[in-house]
Amino acid sequence: MTEVPTITLNNGVGIPQLGFGVFQIPPKDTRAAVLTALETGYRHIDTAEMYGNEKEVGQAVRDSGIDRTEIFVTSKLNNGFHEPEAAARAFRKTLETLDIGHLDAFLIHWPLPKVGDFTETWHAMEEMYRTGDVNVIGVSNFQPHHLRRLLDSSTIVPALNQIEIHPYLAQDDVRAFNTEHEIATEAWSPIAQGLVLDDPVINAIAERLGKTAAQVTLRWHIDRGDIVFPKSTTPSRIKENFDLFDFALSEEDMAQITALNRNERTGFDPDQFNATST
């Protein structure tokens, strides 16, 4: 089986650098997709209460026959539960819904800067970590100014910051801030909802290497040091996205792909997004 690199987080916990995401996978398709991913060799599953498929993720983990300690599972706090007591209840609900024992990582899904004080939410996350029911706590979609506020009022530095990253949104400023503070960067929407798959620069590299545009893009993420989790419900695509470790990108390849940055988002701007029901 392919050996996926492990990233050691700031609290000493290891996380597989390549994972499987279930965003936008309908609940009815989630169990089968996750089982295929686990059979392929993925040992990192990324879900969220917002996605509506935590239950099916848990079923797949239990049904896989793989020792629970070998699978890293992440979920996220939904937007309507930032008040500390509500956050604690939401965390307990996630644990019950997944039904896989402990949770490996739990993240604040969005900072919601105009909704409430996310630093108070983070204090609730710190308490969850201290109980031992979750191994890692972190954030998602946090910009450097969000992180500065959080760090100024907290005792635990987030281990993870999951942000939108792809060749059209390189996010070098956020990544640099994360690195400076020993916060690992995770990349969601790693192929820009498919937009980069027709890019002539990426396709020229892929043709030269005998790989697909998706594989080249995902390898770019890996070589940058980001944690990445592509998603698919197609077994052949799930396996293709895992097949990243038998080729290498040159420094020139990396530079050409990074130069495609146009600061173009496929998702919400964290400074503007404040919906608590999404």
Rank of each mutant, 00 (worst) to 15 (best):
V216F: 02
I7P: 01
V157H: 12
R175H: 15
Q24Y: 08
A192R: 03
G116D: 14
T155K: 15
G101N: 01
V34A: 00
E85C: 12
T121I: 04
D133L: 10
P5S: 00
I183H: 12
F20K: 05
I25A: 00
A86C: 14
E54T: 06
G52Q: 10
A214S: 09
P158Y: 07
Q215D: 05
T278S: 15
I165C: 15
D46L: 01
I227N: 11
L249S: 06
T185P: 04
A204I: 06
N53S: 02
P158F: 12
K55R: 11
D253Q: 08
G194F: 07
A275G: 15
A88P: 12
H221W: 04
N53C: 04
K93P: 10
S277G: 13
H221P: 11
E180T: 14
E207H: 13
A33N: 01
A214G: 01
F247R: 05
A259F: 08
A88E: 15
I100N: 02
P190L: 02
I71S: 00
G41E: 05
H221V: 10
N241P: 09
E85T: 13
L160G: 12
F242N: 06
A192G: 10
H109M: 13
V134H: 01
V22E: 10
T94H: 06
S140L: 08
W110A: 13
G138T: 10
F118T: 09
F106R: 10
D246I: 07
E83N: 12
R31P: 00
G21Y: 09
V216L: 02
G194H: 07
F23S: 08
T278N: 15
T74N: 04
V139W: 03
N178T: 13
R208M: 10
G14P: 05
D226P: 02
T266V: 14
N135S: 04
L35Q: 02
T94L: 03
E180K: 14
D152F: 07
I45R: 07
E49S: 14
R149W: 13
G267V: 14
E240F: 00
A32G: 07
T36K: 06
I205K: 05
